[in-house]
Write a protein that binds this DNA or RNA. Structure first.
Length: 1109
RNA sequence: AGAUCCGUAGCUCAGCCUGGUUAGAGCACUACACUGAUAAUGUAGGGGUCAGCAGUUCAAAUCUGCUCGGGUCUACCA
């Protein structure tokens, strides 16, 4: 054990951090903090896996700080918090990175490079920056188990994923279907939403748009339309499209159930034939000019600009349901289904178009959904190259967009429009500018195209997911009810399929005709199947896998395996990979290789669900969603009880950080320069984690100075004097009641702080907790307790009062180190260790192994805290009065005068009188109770109490109160009641209806703050002047001592020349001066040439200070 | 396009849930003081149409609606 507290010359956070980190690693403090809690109630935390094929940024520091501080806090509160790190290793970003590095495209895979080689490269590349990540993790003090991470590409991990999928399969939640996905014909590949959201993919394009006319067929359902149109008339539905090339594939028209529609009689503007058209009422204005309404039909000729029209019927969309129409472009019909009907869909709006949506189930997600609902079939007259199939008449073989960069490409949309015009099937053709997604690689427009895909039927458990979501504590709450809640309400089935190479393969094998299939749930099951297939099918089937079974669960190996169906047919694997979000969503189970290992941990709730997770808000519909979905589907449980979604980190001007803008902040540089603790503290206390934060290093500097600098100074102050007096906390703990007022006060405030911090941390509000600690350290501990108590630490003997001061300050520093440990793990441990290495008070060698402080309710004394506040306010007022009247603090003054409203206030101030007096250097305090005429008072209405009673009369009453005379106020104070005269009405008020403030004491210098008033007597008597001069001299000699480099305890001899103005001060305060400056003699000599020149109240002279030998 | 969060001093943020008449703090700036904690501290000062508009109310930064600006997510849809 050290005998002395370590003293330091200056604060160097990065250096402290290095030292502490070394200690942690050498003595395995993290491991101990977990193993120490064996058997304790676990606090379950899940680490969302980052992808290590990109470099970490400063935004990772905030979310990891948040995660770390919660885990550290819970550990200190006695829980065992296991934290496995993880790596997200599959998926498109990895593949794209590899393709870029190898200079290949997707098409080259399997040709220029084998799939095996390609995947091997991915496997290596994906952990490219693992070291960098691990270094950041250690450097920023994020405690997470880096030794045993879960890695999503490992066989164990994938095996758990397969088990999960098999569970879903068994529950009937896994199915195959055609879905509409973004597809790039130019690149010949489907695109993920990720790719679609690359910057610059959405471009403004001008397309030819058509309002097409679909001819209604008369039937019972449509009779009302024909009746309204009149005998022998034709009725058309108008539908708008920006993609006329989808019209040959049209199978339906969708209307809104509650939207109002009209049947309008008019002429076709191109063919001039009389027509009756159906259009949404709200949109009729777009197609018909107001001047033409109810115009003269018989007199109209095609030369007339204004086409007459009139409404002949009005009805709701639901009345149109299932009315049939003639196919617009009858090139081909779907193989199955009952097409060419009017459907109802909730996605229809009246914002643009006609309120009737042309529905081609092959080329739109909404279309597909509503089409499926009505069973109208599907018709796909465009192939995967983006050209019409050969059964589309004159359009056969034409590319729907210019995918081949043909110089004389003719827009097929235009030709379709022309054809429709000629056939009396177009009501309007025009160019329209809108944004449309483009393939980020080929710059060509994307198609929405039906592709085969496997889905998880999340919609089947939607209600349960919604219900369970309500039990999750979201921070902030609005994200859970809002963004996430609404997302759940509008969920669609989860498209699992990805046509890629590097990812978790879908463990489903099928016969060629699709009638038989199997979903594999474990490696053992697959190996069994491998052997069985070989036995049944014979030959070379699975030959390479018979001996050792399968060794790598990735492509291409899984694809080489053929299984056999119960009826003896070969089954091949469905070629798709699984969405990487499935990888991360299943991590609660896969990280433990459940259920093949650690089965009880999850079954018994020791590792599931999580008590707490936290990630960026961008994960709301990513990880948070997939975790929740899988938790509900697999275990009918939430996957996490509390989730904190933190906001983004923006640059100091509020822009998103991006490499392109060059405003990214390097976390290493920041930490090296300012320290991890200052960075963490800044990020946590600057704003609530869920607010976006504007990252500014100036803020870190401020934290460094303000909090850590102050705390460091306080510690150093303590260490210096504790070392002088040999304080090692060996004496008995002095009971609080035996300590002076100010000690009990700071301990009281300290305990209030403990209570507050605990409450905040339990509520996952670290920002509030950090701010509270900061205020305590700065306002209370440093700027009041230490400032007022300085003398107690260096003056006088080492006995009761001094020991009490040391014990008190020690306790404050120690508890503060514990309170701040979760947020600033390094500095807190440094301070804790410095303290504990001398006192040996605690057996835990690190603050992170100690228990979080518990509140000592007995120590909390609200009355005491209140009167100390009074002392602070009064001192502040007196100091401001001194400033105003130019009386420096070193000059003692005789008295201050404080009007008190009641006995309680007087008693409170009396108890802290000595503190005020020494702080502001005043001899006495006098209290004024009641003296009408002596104190001038000010009266203010209490709006809150009066307002409810007075209502509309409030303004007049306030004016009347403002007009009360001093005498009136006195009456009110004496009687407790007063009758106001407001607009000739007597309105009684009582004391609680007003605030009365002593505003002024005529003839005195006065200051007020709130209800408090202080007057200062600024007369300086000769005695006071002497004392002031004496203090000045002490101050000058102390400075000489310090400048001469004397030790604090050195004794000195002093010679001063005979200065008449100071002589009486020297005579009368000789003893005082000697005590203060530790002088054995203070001699007045007639003349003095040697020594140091000083100036006291405008007199200049020399002082000779000699160290005693 | 929809959902959601945000907008208070030059900067970072409190206050808003629960309405009350002089809207606070820190930083920065200016001046003065203090100085056995000194790269600290105190006192004073300047600095705000609380994004805008309308409404509710005796009273709105605070409640309601709309608008504008910024962020994020989802979608891109005829």
């Amino acid at each position: 054990m050290a005998s002395k507290y370590q003293e330091y010359n200056q604060l160097n956070l990065p250096q402290i951090e290095q030292e502490i980190r070394k200690e942690w690693e050498q003595h395995q403090i993290f491991e101990k903090s977990v193993s120490n809690r064996d058997g304790a109630i676990p606090f379950v935390f899940y680490e969302g896996p980052p992808s290590a094929n990109g470099l970490p940024g400063i935004h990772h520091v905030i979310s990891r700080s948040l995660k770390d501080l919660v885990c550290r806090y819970k550990t200190m509160k006695g829980h065992q918090v296991k934290r496995k790190s993880g790596w997200d290793t599959h998926g498109l970003p990895v593949e794209l990175g590899v393709e870029k590095a190898l200079g290949i495209t997707k098409e080259d895979i399997g040709k220029k490079i084998s799939i095996a080689e390609y995947n091997e490269t991915c496997r290596k590349e994906v952990l490219k920056y693992k070291d960098v990540w691990e270094e950041l993790t250690r450097k920023m003090g994020y405690w997470v188990d880096l030794q045993h991470p879960y890695i999503t590409f490992e066989n164990d991990y994938i095996e758990s994923l397969w088990w999960c999928m098999q569970q879903l399969y068994k529950k009937g939640l896994l199915y195959k279907s055609v879905s509409i996905q973004p597809y790039s014909p130019a690149a010949g590949t489907g695109l993920s939403s990720h790719e679609l959201n690359q910057p610059g993919t959405y471009k403004d394009v001008k397309d030819t748009t058509v309002v097409a006319m679909f001819k209604a067929i008369a039937s019972d359902k449509s009779q009302f339309l024909f009746d309204a149109a009149g005998a022998g008339e034709e009725v058309f539905f108008l539908a708008w499209t920006t993609t006329p090339w989808t019209l040959p594939s049209n199978l339906g028209l969708t209307v809104g159930e509650n939207i109002d529609y009209q049947l309008v009689k008019t002429f076709n503007p191109y063919t001039h034939l009389p027509v009756n058209v159906v259009v949404a009422k709200d949109l009729a204005g777009k197609y018909f000019k107001a001047e033409g309404e109810n115009g003269d039909f018989s007199a109209w000729t095609p030369e007339d600009k204004i086409i007459p029209w009139k409404v002949v019927a009005g009805f709701k969309g639901r009345q149109l349901e299932n009315i049939r129409y003639e196919q617009l472009l009858p090139f081909a019909q779907p193989e199955e289904g009952d097409p060419f009907r009017v459907l109802l869909g909730d996605f229809v709006t009246t914002e643009d178009g006609t309120g009737i949506v042309h529905t081609a189930p092959a080329f739109g997600a909404d279309d597909n959904r509503v089409g499926k609902k009505y069973g109208i079939g599907i018709l796909t007259l465009v192939d995967r190259q983006g050209k019409f199939t050969d059964n589309v008449g004159e359009f056969s073989g034409r590319y729907v967009k210019n995918y081949k960069n043909e110089t004389e490409y003719k827009d097929v949309d235009v030709d379709i429009a022309v054809k429709l015009k000629k056939e009396n099937r177009a009501f309007r053709v025009e160019k329209y500018e809108h944004t449309y997604p483009h393939c980020w690689r080929t710059d060509k427009p994307v198609l929405y195209y039906p592709l085969d895909a496997w889905f998880i039927r999340t919609t089947a458990v939607k209600d349960r997911m919604v219900e369970l979501n309500k039990t999750i504590q979201w921070k902030p709450a609005a994200t859970g009810t809002g963004r996430f809640g609404q997302w759940l309400e509008n969920m669609v089935d989860w498209n699992l399929s990805r046509s890629r190479y590097w990812g978790t393969p879908l463990p489903i094998w099928r016969t060629e005709d699709g009638t038989e299939e199997i979903c594999i749930g474990s490696i053992a099951e697959l190996n069994d199947g491998i052997r069985k297939a070989n036995e049944v099918l014979g030959g070379d089937v699975n030959k390479a896998y018979l001996h050792d079974g399968i060794l790598d669960l990735h492509k291409p190996y899984v694809d080489e395996i053929i299984l056999v169906s119960p009826s003896g047919k070969p089954m091949r694997r469905e070629p798709d990979l699984v969405d990487v979000w499935f990888d991360s969503g299943a991590m609660p189970y896969a990280q433990w290789h459940y259920p093949f290992e650690n089965k009880e941990n999850i079954d018994k709730g020791q590792a599931f669900p999580a008590d707490f997770i936290a990630e960026g808000v961008d994960q709301t519909r990513g990880w948070f969603y997939t975790l929740h979905a899988l938790g509900v589907m697999l275990f009918d449980n939430v996957a996490y009880k509390t989730v904190v979604s933190n906001g983004l980190v923006l640059d100091k001007d509020g822009n998103k950080m991006s490499k392109r803008l060059g405003n990214v902040v390097d976390p290493f540089q920041t930490i090296d320069q300012y320290g991890a603790d200052a960075t963490r503290w800044y990020m946590i206390t600057n704003a609530s984690p869920w607010d976006n934060m504007k990252f500014n290093v100036e803020g870190i500097k401020e934290v460094q100075r303000k909090l850590f600098g102050t705390l460091y100074n306080t510690y150093n102050f303590f260490a210096m004097y504790a070392n002088l007096d040999g304080f090692r906390f060996e004496e008995k703990y002095i009971p609080l009641e035996e300590r002076p007022e100010i000690d009990r006060w700071i301990i009281s405030v300290l305990n209030t702080l403990v209570k507050q911090v605990t409450g905040n941390m339990d509520e996952f509000e670290p920002t509030q907790a950090g701010r509270a600690v900061q205020e305590f350290v700065d306002e209370h501990l440093s700027n009041w307790y230490v400032r007022l108590c300085r003398r107690r630490f260096w003056k006088g003997e080492y006995e009761h009062d001094k020991i009490s001061a040391f014990q008190t300050l020690y306790e404050c520093l120690e508890k503060v180190s514990q309170l701040m440990a979760p947020v600033s793990p390094f500095f807190s441990d440094w301070m804790y260790r410095n303290l504990n290495s001398v006192s040996g008070l605690r057996s835990e060698s690190s603050v992170h192994l100690s228990n979080f402080p518990a509140v000592n309710e007995v120590a909390v004394d609200k009355e005491l805290e209140e009167r100390m506040q009074l002392a602070q306010d009064i001192s502040s007022l007196v100091l401001s009065l001194r400033k105003k009247t130019n009386n420096k603090v070193r000059q003692p003054l005789q008295k201050i005068l404080i009007p008190v409203t009641d006995e309680h206030m007087k008693a409170q101030i009396t108890l802290v009188e000595h503190l005020i007096k020494s702080e502001v250097n005043v001899k006495t305090i006098e209290y004024l109770t009641e003296t009408e005429g002596f104190i001038k008072k000010k009266i203010k209405p209490n709006f809150k109490s009066l307002g409810t009673r007075m209502g509309a009369k409030m303004k007049a009453v306030a004016a009347a109160i403002g007009g009360m005379e001093q005498h009136d106020i006195a009456v009110l104070e004496k009687d407790g009641e007063f009758g106001l005269n407001v607009e000739n009405e007597r309105i009684p008020i009582v004391l609680s209806d007003v605030d009365i403030i002593s505003e002024d004491i005529p003839g005195w210098t006065v200051a007020n703050k709130g209800m408090l008033t202080v007057a200062l007597d600024i007369t300086i008597s000769p005695e006071l002047l002497d004392e002031g001069n004496a203090r000045e001299l002490v101050n000058r000699i102390q400075k000489i001592r310090k400048d001469s480099g004397f030790e604090l305890t050195d004794r000195i001899n002093v010679k001063v020349p005979d200065v008449p103005a100071l002589k009486s001060a020297l005579m009368n305060f000789n003893d005082y001066i000697c005590t203060e400056i530790l002088a054995d003699s203070l001699e007045i000599v007639p003349q003095l040439q040697e020594g140091t020149e000083v100036e006291v109240n405008e007199f200049k002279f020399n002082v000779l200070v000699n160290k005693k030998r």
